[in-house]
Design a protein around this nucleic acid. Structure first.
Length: 680
DNA sequence: CTAGGGTTAG
């Protein structure tokens, strides 16, 4: 609704006085509402205080005004004042009072009001039931929210919308969608609120086909110009990869709101995960940064949604410089005190390679949620800080925060870094016995990896057979590689067979298969895989690295040192020079890049991996002591890894590389990954 | 004269 102007309210007020209508209770209650709707609560209260008489509608109007103007404490105060004055609340009053309870985050007060409702046996009333449903949903009690919904005698659109969004709020999007079909089955017409909510659920479950149906339904119902509906559709399309459709909607939205901008930025950040080997996804990241700057330029003020997304973006672009600028802005605007923004900040520093910055941000948070703790634990694990991660996990339990599945993924990853298999198994048991958490695929992946890495192939295989999930390619690949290295050909070939059944998706998997078959002298299988690589065009993942300097992203491809062109002459010279120096430190080119696995490879035609160019570019374009921060879409090879360890000594720079699988932080000749980076 | 749903973030 359009926000009214105070001057309009005053004009109405003057008119009422002139005509003498101020003696009329109905008219004056209307005036209270008018003042409330333009945010002038002091004036609203003054009019209320001069009312000739007070009835429950007048009280309710005042309470509603306070709730809508984000003054829930005052709303409850007035509600109590009303009870003291001897007025009985109606279903309208109780509904808005329950609303005040959820903004106040006071479940206690909500329960008191609920008790009153039960006492007078009015929980079947539609408006009361609706309010109760959304109250319990906001407090995370989905079961109770559904229960109250079921209690409603005559369910209307609002009841259905309330329960559908309750599922969304509590991470049960799929069930929410089945309630939507139940609603249609009952012939209840969805409105723009329902459709927006449902579109958001489609987005969560990434169901483009259903989303498209809902989109056309919303057009059929005449909501194609409704802004929230359009925002949701745009976000859905973007997140599902229909970038052009999303842009079209974005450009068509004339009075784009902050939510529109936030959604398009967030969507870009989301699709960066969609295709790691896709350059355009990363260009999407750059574009998101540009859109953010454009938004600022247009005079819109970023809010907590903007800041959370953009901080995540900076983490994904490994763009610490930008991240620090955003950090400063969150301080200036006060949004840093928001727990989601704080958590995003922790994540940003860590992903940029600064675990100290992350710890500092974490310690300085005034409140922490489960997600904040989990973020910090997972990131400590990412940096190879096993003991600190496990200690933080204990701290978290000590302050009474209950871990979830993802927390345990972080804990197991921390154990994995130090190959603490038995400790990991203890935590795995704790998760199931003490916390009744069902293991997910990630847990099995980490455990299998750990077993394999420590040579306990039998236990790895037993675990694979025991788990409730179909083993995925990661699992089989880990087993295959471990078996090959340990010379267990039977097990390795079995894993290879399973991988073939899954249909290898990329060249890294194919290369592992080739190695396995070569070790087992299975020449026919080898040629089969080679054929597959040719036919499916899996021969080589396009390989890139990126570096972000001053908000601009530069990308690099691998190249031969022997054929510099004008663009890379300076970089090639620098690399050549550093290569020579590295040799004096004992660096030796092993002759074969693991990715290429080419027996003909020899020292004279050493190929520079893309990250080396990115590093050279960084060295030439950043100040002396600045860290070099890079992203790479494939896994690093060992050869490059050795070279970059030397570079960290030679250049006295911190070098951070986020590759396809993990974070490498090179300082003084050492890497945080501990030199084994899994078996992929 | 008063209400009860919605979009974007970690």
């Amino acid at each position: 609704m359009e926000r009214r102007l105070v001057s309009d309210a005053e004009a109405v007020h003057a008119h009422i006085i002139k005509t003498g209508a101020y003696v009329d209770l109905f008219v004056m209650t209307f005036l209270v509402n008018v003042y409330a709707q333009c945010g002038a609560m002091a004036a609203a209260r003054k009019v209320f205080d001069y009312l000739p008489k007070r009835n429950v509608v007048a009280w309710t109007t005042l309470i509603t005004g306070h709730v809508h103007n984000s003054e829930p404490e005052l709303a409850i105060q007035v509600y109590l004042e009303m009870l003291e004055a001897g007025s009985y609340p109606t279903n309208f009053t109780l509904g808005i009072a329950l609303n005040a309870c959820s903004s106040l985050q006071s479940l206690e007060l909500g329960k008191q009001i609920h008790a009153y409702i039960v006492k007078y046996q009015i929980e079947h009333d539609t408006s009361i039931g609706n309010a109760l449903c959304s109250l319990y949903s906001k407090f995370g009690d989905l079961d109770y929210a559904v229960k109250t919904f079921r209690c409603i005698a005559e369910k209307n659109v609002i009841s259905w919308t309330a329960v559908i969004s309750a599922f969304g709020e509590n991470g049960e999007a799929a069930s929410g969608l089945s309630f939507f079909s139940e609603m249609l089955w009952e012939n209840v017409e969805p409105n723009e609120f329902t459709l927006t909510s449902v579109l958001s659920l489609c987005c969560t479950v990434m169901s483009l086909s259903l989303g498209k149906q809902v989109h056309s339904l919303s057009i059929k119902r005449g909501y194609q110009l409704n802004l929230p509906v359009r925002n949701s559709v745009m976000y859905l399309y973007l997140k599902c990869g229909l970038v052009n459709e999303a842009y079209k909607l974005f450009n068509e939205i004339e009075s784009s709101s902050l939510v529109t901008w936030n959604a398009i930025i967030a969507g870009h950040v989301q699709i960066m995960d969609l295709a790691f080997d896709n350059l355009s996804a990363y260009q999407g990241g750059t574009r998101a940064l540009e859109i953010f700057l454009r938004m600022i330029h247009s005079g819109l003020k970023p809010d907590l949604f903007t800041f959370s997304s953009v901080l995540t973006l900076c983490g994904k672009l490994v763009a610490q410089e930008q991240g620090e600028q955003i950090h400063a802005q969150t301080i200036k605007t006060g949004f840093l005190s928001d727990v989601v923004v704080g958590t995003a900040l922790v994540n940003m520093y860590s992903k940029c390679g600064s675990i100290r910055g992350a710890s500092k941000a974490f310690v300085e948070m005034s409140t922490r949620t489960l997600i904040s703790w989990t973020t910090m634990i997972t990131n400590l694990a990412l940096h190879g800080k096993t003991q600190q991660a496990l200690q933080l996990f204990e701290d978290m339990r000590l302050v009474g925060v209950r871990p979830n599945q993802i927390t345990f993924v972080g804990v197991l990853a921390a154990c994995g870094h130090s190959l603490m298999v038995d400790e990991a198994l203890n935590y795995f048991e704790m998760m199931q016995k003490e916390y009744r958490i069902k293991p997910v695929m990630n847990h099995f992946e980490l455990l299998v990896d750990m077993f394999v890495m420590s040579g306990r192939l039998g236990e790895a295989f037993d675990l694979i057979k025991k788990m409730d999930y179909e083993p995925n390619e990661f699992i089989w690949l880990a087993l295959l590689t471990g078996a090959r290295i340990r010379g267990n050909l039977d097990l390795g070939l079995y894993a290879a067979e399973q991988l073939i059944k899954l249909g290898p998706r990329d060249s890294e998997i194919c290369i592992s298969l080739l190695r396995m078959y070569r070790a087992a002298e299975r020449w026919i299988d080898m040629s089969h895989v080679e054929k597959l690589m040719r036919e499916e065009q899996l021969l080589k993942l396009g390989e890139w690295s990126w570096i972000c300097i001053k908000g601009k992203v530069y990308s690099f491809e691998p190249n031969e040192l022997s054929c510099p062109d004008n663009n890379n002459m300076e970089m090639c010279t620098l690399l050549e020079h550093l290569l020579g120096q590295a040799k004096t430190l004992g660096y030796e080119f092993s002759g074969s890049s693991e990715l290429v696995d080419n027996e003909d490879a020899n020292v004279s035609s050493r190929i520079h991996q893309s990250e080396e160019f990115a590093i050279a570019f960084g060295l030439l374009n950043t100040p002396n002591a600045a860290p070099i921060q890079i992203i790479k879409n494939t896994s690093m090879c060992r050869n490059c890894h050795d070279f970059i360890k030397c570079l960290s000594i030679l250049t006295a720079r911190k070098i951070v590389i986020q590759d396809r699988k993990r974070l490498h932080k090179f300082v003084d000749g050492k890497c945080s990954c501990g030199d084994f980076w899994g078996l992929l």
